[in-house]
Each structure stands twice: as C-alpha cells, then as structure tokens.
C-alpha cells in the first residue's frame, strides 16, 4: 500500500536562507505522525510544500500515491499555525462555505457541520458571528472546517496551542478516533509530552534538515537506557561502582547516569549486597531529552 504522504529529498530556499534541505519522509494511512523541531526549523515550510502553497525548489511530493496535483487537495485537511476565520460570518455559514470550497454540496456541508458541532459541544454557537466567540471555540470551528470533507490526510500545524486542557483532550481524542478510522494524521508541535503520547512515528528537524526520524519505539530504542532511578536505605558505598558516570544523591533517592554501555545489572547486584533497595528503575531517555540532545549536538557541530 502506497504511503499517504511521501516526500523525496525536497528542498526550499528563500532569499539567502535555506528553509528545508533534502527532507524525506513517509506517512502511512492509520498513523499519527509528529513533525518536531525548534522554532524556525522548517516545519511550516515543509508542510506548505505538502499542500501546494509553495513548490519545492527540488525533490518531489507524492500525495495519496500520486505525484502532487491540486486535485488531491480535496482529500487533505490542513489547519495552519496562522489560522483564522471570517469574523463577520456566522459559524454555520462559514463552515458551509469552507465545505463547499472543498467540493461538498451545500446540503451535505450543512449536515456535516451540524454533526461536528454536536460532537465538539459547540452546537449553541452555530448562529453566532465568529467575532462573538471565545478563542477556544474559534479553534474548535477551525478544527471542524479542516475535517468537514472527511479528508484522508489531516495536517495540523500546532493544533493544541492555546487550548485549555479540557478542550485539548477533546481534540486529542477526536484525532485518535480519526486515526483508528484509517486516516493519516500529521501534526507539528514542540510539545514533546503530546508527541510521546500520541504519535506512532516522528521526524525531528533542525535547521531545515531531518536529524532523527522513524517509528516512535524504534527511535527511542536507538537510545540506551542509561539512567537509573534508585531508592534505598543503608550504606551508599555502591555509588562508587565503575558503571556510574555521575549521580545525584537526594538522601535515599538517587538519580544516576551510567557510563556508555555500562552493565546496570552488576550495579544492581552490588547495591543489593550493601543496602536495602526499595526501587531500581532503568529509564529510557524521554523524547524531550532526545530532542535536546540531538538538536544540541547539531547546533554544536
């Protein structure tokens, strides 16, 4: 089965600045894909090329198994980071207008708008003008307008920024439902906790280049479990074990960083001999640490 999105070594420069350099990625149907990177790293530029707002200088974009064509955009829902609504328009009119632009007829657009408003609990707002609504409500409407035409590919640039936790969860759950229904979802963010929870695959870009990409589990498995969190009582002389690179001892609660490829099991054995161990956990690095580590390395290099 062909990928829903396939970017093959796309590049884009503006004036003197290279926004995206030789970026390749694949997004499969039924997956949630996280595009990560610090501010100004080229996330939005990459997304704009995916939806044909700008054209890559080189490389190719395939959507839904075919080379990019505007026709395919009827199958794509795109929520940009810089997003807005027509302030003077009523919510329902606005949703119908957006639906019609994406190829729905007026009746279908109206019905779907109604259903979506019900699902996201904003049915009471449909007859109001956009400018009368709260920011969170406006974001839900933007969210709906992206999904009205039942797209196969959903692209959201920073979808949760500025949402309160209740609504953020509501939208997250909606995205998970859509993923389970077989849609491909790409979202960009710099909130690592969300990515870690939601995404099946990620691509981390920095300065326009992919520095890390792949399935979430696979990416994390590339990094050693080299951290130990330990709680004990008694003699702490095991902290001089050769496997330990550095440690912080908070009287009974210790955070240890191991030397590369060190044997954590031998440390555990020694600890058990010397002290009473309540907890010994070998932790994998969080995505945030990976992010900082990877981007930090590249910045230094």
């Amino acid at each position: 089965m062909p990928a829903v999105v396939e970017l093959d070594r796309i590049s884009k420069s503006y004036e003197k600045k290279v926004a995206v350099r030789e970026l390749s990625l694949r997004i499969e149907a039924g997956t949630m894909f996280g595009l990560l990177g610090p501010n100004g790293s080229g996330k939005t530029s990459s997304i704009r090329m995916m939806v044909g707002i700008t054209m890559p200088d080189s490389g190719s974009v395939n959507l839904l198994g075919k080379p990019f064509a505007r026709e395919s955009l009827k199958q794509v829902g795109y929520l940009p980071e810089e997003r807005g609504l027509y302030k003077k328009m009523k919510v329902l009119d606005q949703l119908i207008f957006m639906g019609e632009l994406r190829g729905l007829d007026k009746g279908t657009a109206g019905r779907r708008a109604h259903n979506w408003c019900e699902r996201l609990q904003i049915l009471e707002a449909v007859d109001k003008k956009t400018e009368e609504l709260s920011k969170g409500m406006q974001q839900k409407i933007q969210f709906i307008s992206t999904l009205m035409h039942d797209p196969e590919l959903i692209i959201m640039d920073e979808p949760f920024s500025g949402l309160d936790p209740v609504n953020a969860v509501l939208l997250q759950d909606t995205l998970i439902d859509l993923k389970n229904a077989g849609k491909a979802i790409l979202f960009s963010t710099h909130r690592m906790d969300q990515v870690e929870k939601l995404c099946d695959a990620i691509c981390l870009i920095n300065a326009g280049q992919a520095v890390l990409s792949g399935g979430m589990r696979e990416v994390k498995s590339r990094y050693e479990r080299d951290r130990v969190v330990l709680q004990f009582e008694g003699d702490n002389s095991f902290l001089q074990h050769p496997a330990i690179a550095e440690y912080k001892d908070y009287s009974g609660h210790v955070e240890i960083k191991l030397k590369p490829h060190a044997d954590a099991q031998s440390l555990l054995r020694e600890a058990i001999e010397k002290a009473k161990i309540y907890k010994f956990e070998l932790v994998e690095p969080s995505l945030e640490e990976i992010f900082i580590q990877t981007v930090g390395e590249k910045v230094d290099a």
Binding site: V51, I53, R70, L73, K74, V76, Y78, L79, P80, E82, R83, G84, L85, Y86, K87, M98, L101, R102, Q142, S145
Partner: peptide
C-alpha cells in the same frame, strides 16, 4: 488586509489558488 490580519489566508490557500 482584513483577511491577512485574521489569518484566514493560509486556511483558504490549502484548497483555493
């Protein structure tokens, strides 16, 4: 200008030329 300040453009451009 209004469409630009209300940031509606990019939403529209994802489907309209």
């Amino acid at each position: 200008i209004q469409e630009k300040t209300s940031r509606i453009f990019e939403v529209m451009l994802a489907t309209v030329k």
